[in-house]
């Protein structure tokens, strides 16, 4: 029977293929659910953690990674993806693990230092070679000869951060005069050339389609884009005031307990705060809290006044209802 022979050879090929990727069986495995652009960061950190864990306990650990838009990742966990830890780029996405899934305690932000955010970043500008429009701060982006590109705040966390950063700047600049701040942000939004749905799309618009004078995204991303497209000679500009973008982490206690990984999961997140790990994170262009590492990377991270969500909108819940809900401030200001 030809068919049987064929089926056998396929099965063999599959077995080889599958076994090649599981060639070394680790003593323990951990699943980390993370945001979509953090793959290389965690590939590197997982290696670091595996050696630390091996030294400490003598056991080998293999950390599996799941990457995607962090809202969708959180949704998958609520639907049953058994991740042991989450490492996201938005506080709201960790919060819903408590509010909708009761998978983590309400006080998850108090479980680890710095409000459970081992590293942070801020919104920065990517400008074309030589910064021809002389862009240095948010007020430049409201000029009528400057057009900017960033993802739509309606669909993207990245875009929401940019909107909040601009709003926070306006609140400061106009000393809390809400009407003036609104007017500024309205002008700022009207100068946007294209609203893409996500960060990757905005990058493509700016780099490959050549649209806009400024691309606004995470500082950590800006540096990656420069590295990715060295021929374009892009430059980073960090505004004087910007938004504190936190990268919250949490142990998904229900799942980790079930997987028998609670201790391992906690150690995995604790290790992120160690000096070596903080150095590794800084190497990926994230800002960190460790003072020794901060001093080492002082040149790379220009001083910036960081506004928190509490300063700008009170809390994430308020920010969502005041700014981003249907018909709320963002919609009103975008009406041209």
């Amino acid at each position: 029977m030809k068919l049987v022979k064929h089926a056998k050879s396929v099965a063999l090929a599959l077995a080889i293929g599958l076994s090649s990727s599981h060639s070394f069986a680790a003593d323990q495995t951990l699943l980390n659910s993370s945001y979509d652009i953090a793959r290389e960061l965690f590939a590197s950190y997982n290696e670091h953690f595996a050696s630390v864990w091996k030294e400490k306990t003598g056991k080998t650990v293999e950390v599996r990674q799941s990457h995607g838009g962090s809202s969708r990742q959180a949704q998958a966990i609520i639907e049953g993806l058994r991740a042991d830890v989450v490492t996201y780029n938005q506080v709201t996405d960790v919060d819903i693990l408590h509010t909708r899934g009761k998978l983590i305690p309400a006080d998850w932000r108090d479980q680890l230092p710095n409000a459970s955010s081992p590293y942070y970043s801020t919104m920065a500008y990517l400008v074309r070679k030589g910064n021809p429009k002389g862009v240095s701060n948010w007020d430049d982006l409201a000029r009528d000869d400057v057009s900017s590109v960033f993802p739509n705040p309606k669909t993207s966390g990245n875009g929401r951060y940019t909107y909040l950063a601009a709003y926070g700047y306006a609140q400061k600049a106009f000393e809390g005069d809400e009407a003036k701040a609104d007017e500024f942000v309205k002008t700022f939004l009207s100068r946007v050339a294209v609203f893409d749905t996500g960060g990757r799309g905005a990058t493509t618009t700016f780099v490959e389609r050549g649209i806009g004078d400024v691309l606004i995204t995470f500082e950590s991303e800006v540096n990656n884009i420069i590295a990715e497209f060295p021929d374009h000679g892009f430059e980073v500009v960090v505004p004087k005031v910007s938004f504190l973008a936190e990268f919250p982490v949490a142990v998904v206690e229900r799942h980790a307990t079930r997987n028998g990984n609670l201790e391992l999961a906690k150690a995995y997140l604790d290790e992120l705060y160690s000096e070596d790990a903080q150095r590794l994170l800084a190497g990926f262009n994230y800002r960190v809290h460790n003072e020794v590492v901060q001093a080492e990377f002082a040149d790379q991270f220009p001083a910036v006044e960081l506004l928190t969500i509490e300063e700008i909108a009170g809390s994430w819940d308020d920010a969502m209802s005041i700014h981003f809900a249907n018909g709320a401030k963002l919609d009103q200001l975008q009406r041209r």
């Binding site: 290389e40 599996r64 990457h67 995607g68 998958a76």
Partner: peptide, 20 residues
């Protein structure tokens, strides 16, 4: 669930690499 090396099929892998 997009778990690399576990539940990532070829079409999903294409998207993931592109995002990277």
């Amino acid at each position: 669930g997009n778990i690399r090396g576990e539940t990532n099929t070829l079409p999903l892998h294409v998207e993931l690499l592109y995002q990277d």
